[in-house]
Write a protein that binds this DNA or RNA. Sequence first.
DNA 1: TACCAGGAGAGCG
DNA 2: CGCTCTCATGGT
Length: 294
Amino acid sequence: MPQPSLKLNETTFTVRDYDLAATLGCGQAFRWELRQGRWHGVVGGISLELWQAEETIFVRSAAPQTTWNWLADYLQVHADLAAITDTFPKEAPMRRAVAACRGLRLLRQEPWECLASFILSSTKQIVQIRQIIARLCERHGHPMTVRPGEAAAFAFPTPVQVAALSEAQLRDCKMGFRAPYLRQTAQMILANEVNLDDLRRLDLPSARASLLGFPGVGPKIADCVLLFAYGFPTAFPVDVWVMKALRRSYFQNRRVPLAQLRYFAASHFGPYAGYAQQYLFHSLRRSEGKKLSP
DNA sequence: TACCAGGAGAGCG
DNA sequence: CGCTCTCATGGT
């Protein structure tokens, strides 16, 4: 029998070195919206509301839960951030980047949503990626249970749902030339050509090779999925921002071939290079005055 | 108005 | 292999 006194749709996490706003707003995930001081989003098919006060993260969900382990994993609240940043190279550029976004965590996202989202990310600004994904979810995702008075929320469309859409329907979500990539990727998953859950048990090169088999997935997007969904700590996505940060801090601002930057990154930043990458990315975007959260 | 965006793929020599 | 061009759309 349910016990009415238990608040099964609320919990809290006690955290140290955690900046929820930086973590949810830094461009690793695209569905979190800040409304009246609280972050609204969907994890594991559950509509959530998160906010932080000092060392506590408050959680409210639309549906009651028997465990919150899945959310602790997504938010990576138990990761030892100090131990991670201690592995970074002891040098001025990394110290500055860490100081500029202390408390930023890498999330552990769901593979399909992460893969699909980054297929839609290529040569798009983060604000536009958010818009495309929001439209895709509103039009084609399953409507979710929300708390009374809350705005409507939608699940991220499943591979089955995306595979059933026409290219024109996807293009109506403003994803442009990425539409056939997303559609074909969904169809490949539906046909079980690649099982995203199986990638969890592979080593980094094997998992990367599998991801590169999807249309619209090259080295950069593959590394994003390896880092943000599968948690491979050395995956190191190099986009235009990271490229600029690396050139500025390590190559006297000279133009450097992409392959050379990747080689440098793989040999220089240590066992949590992917974390280092996100600090370089976010600190540069912050210093350039980007609007990082809505 | 130009230029650019968390790139990838195809065509070329 | 490395280079260049194209792809679609909207922010700045």
